[in-house]
């Protein structure tokens, strides 16, 4: 059971960070960004292309991955979010989902549906825990992701620029007084969300079987659940909720191993998370930590 708790908390970090990206864009532009997952997948593929397909240096691969994720995020902003700024919010949501599908389509055409894998950034360094070895890559990923999440939190809640970005949606007059251009701020918000997605992507790539749409299928819904449980507008809330979601998922997996009858339903933990999402929205629409609706 300890094993499932640890792995749940570890997965939770990823959900939390992705949830952070979703909350950031929601706070900044009131858009539900269904393309967030693909920012990460594209970063994975860039890493694969530089490191595996072309034998390039690992650092270059990571940089290329981050760059691709940010570019994709900026494209989403320019081609979808901005043209649909005055359209109903559900249309903007359909737009970001469509953009995710477009990206998946390009991935399918360029990278083909075959699964790809990437070597870890650091080999060895494994730590035994609850009878299995936690790889050095996983530890590295977790440490970096937590640092990034904390840094992002501090940036948005403690610095002038960060608070200014979040002020964009809430009080555009204040933003204007600060001398900021609304489009610039929108770009900055999306760029940072892309960067967060990219970081998660390059760090997760060695642990994943990369296929087109990987992050959308595997991370997007848990991340959204984390964001919703966290109140959709709270950055620390999303991160903490990510841990909760990871824990619930880990315990769900544990329950499945304990009660073999449950194995009939594959990935039963996904059903559990779905229940968490619905119950949260029905019972506490503002999440556990949310203040504003």
């Amino acid at each position: 059971m300890g094993r499932f708790i640890v792995s749940g908390l570890a997965t939770g970090v990823i959900y939390g960070l992705a949830g952070l990206g979703l909350v950031l864009i929601y706070k900044g532009t009131r858009v539900f960004n269904f393309a967030q997952g693909e920012f990460g997948t594209v970063a994975m593929y860039m890493l694969y292309y530089v490191v595996e397909a072309n034998d390039g240096p690992y650092a270059l691969g990571m940089l290329a991955g981050l760059f691709a994720a940010v570019v994709l995020a900026l494209l989403t902003e320019r081609l979808v979010a901005r043209p649909l700024a005055s359209a109903p919010k559900v249309i903007a949501l359909v737009g970001t989902a469509g953009f995710a599908l477009f990206t998946i389509g390009i991935e399918l055409a360029v990278a083909k549906p075959e699964p790809r894998s990437v070597a870890p950034a650091i080999s060895g360094g494994g730590v035994p825990l609850f009878g299995f070895i936690v790889s050095g890559q996983k530890i590295l990923a977790l440490v970096v992701l937590v640092i990034v999440a904390v840094a992002a939190g501090l940036f948005f809640q403690r610095t002038y620029l960060g608070m200014g970005i979040l002020a964009n949606s809430q009080d555009s007059v204040a933003t204007r007084i600060m001398g900021a251009n609304a489009n610039r701020i929108s770009q900055l918000t999306w760029g940072i969300a892309g960067l967060l997605g990219g970081i998660a992507g390059v760090l997760l790539a060695p642990e994943s079987t990369i296929v087109p749409g990987y992050m959308t299928t595997n991370i997007l819904i848990p991340a959204f659940t984390a964001a919703v449980v966290g109140g959709m507008t709270s950055l620390p809330g999303a991160f903490v909720a990510g841990e909760i979601i990871g824990l619930v998922e880990g315990l769900g997996q544990y329950a499945i191993t304990r009660f073999p009858g449950l194995e009939v339903v594959p990935e039963g933990q996904a059903v559990l998370l779905f229940a968490v999402l619905i119950v949260t929205l029905v019972v506490r629409p503002n999440g556990l930590f949310g203040s504003e609706a």
Partner: peptide, 28 residues
């Protein structure tokens, strides 16, 4: 569910329902 939850959140729920159906229910 849609009686209680609307708009963006309903969109999210329907998307999540689709993914759960694909990965879990249709795998029984």
């Amino acid at each position: 569910v849609a009686l209680r939850i609307q708009g963006l959140y309903l969109a999210l729920i329907t998307l999540a329902y689709g993914l759960v159906a694909e990965r879990s229910i249709f795998g029984i």
